[in-house]
Computed example of a mutant assay.
Amino acid sequence: MDVNRSTLCKSILALAIAGITSSAYAASEHSFGGYVKTDFMVSHYDNGAPSDDSLSRQFYVPGTIFGDSSRGNTVTDFQARETRFNFTSANDLGGHKLKFFLELDFFTHSDGNQRVSNSYSPRLRHATVTFDNWTAGQTWSTFQNPGALPEALDFVGAAEGTPFIRQGLLRYTMGGFQFAIENPKTTLTDYATGGRIESDSNYVPDVVGRYNFTSGDASFSVAAVLRQLEIEETVNIGGNGAMSLDESEFGYGVSFAGVVPVMGDDKLKFMLNYGDGIGRYIALNYANAAVVSADGSLDTVSSVSGFVSYQHWWSSKWRSNATVSAFEADYDSSLMGSANESAYSGNINLLYSPVKPVTIGAEWLYANNEKTGGEDGELNRFMVSFKYAL
Rank of each mutant, 00 (worst) to 15 (best):
P261M: 10
Y274A: 07
M263I: 14
I237E: 01
N236Y: 03
V235F: 04
G241M: 01
A283F: 02
V259I: 09
I237T: 01
G238I: 08
S255D: 01
P261D: 07
N273F: 13
F256A: 02
M271K: 01
G238V: 12
N288C: 12
I282Q: 04
D266R: 07
K269S: 05
F256Y: 14
A289W: 00
I237A: 02
G258A: 09
V254Q: 04
T234M: 14
F270I: 04
L284G: 01
L284D: 03
A287L: 09
K267V: 13
I282N: 02
G251I: 08
D276Y: 13
G277S: 06
G258S: 12
G277Y: 06
S244W: 10
G239H: 06
N285C: 10
M243P: 02
D246P: 06
D265G: 01
I278R: 00
N236C: 06
V260A: 06
V254W: 08
G238Q: 05
L272I: 15
G258D: 10
G251C: 11
R280Q: 07
V235L: 07
M263Y: 10
L284H: 02
L268E: 06
F250H: 11
S244R: 11
L268G: 02
S255Y: 02
R280Y: 08
P261I: 08
V259H: 04
G264A: 12
Y281E: 07
G264K: 13
F256S: 04
E249D: 14
R280M: 11
Y252V: 14
P261W: 09
A287M: 10
G258H: 07
G241L: 06
S248P: 04
F270T: 04
F256I: 03
G253Q: 03
T234F: 15
K269V: 13
G253C: 09
N285Q: 15
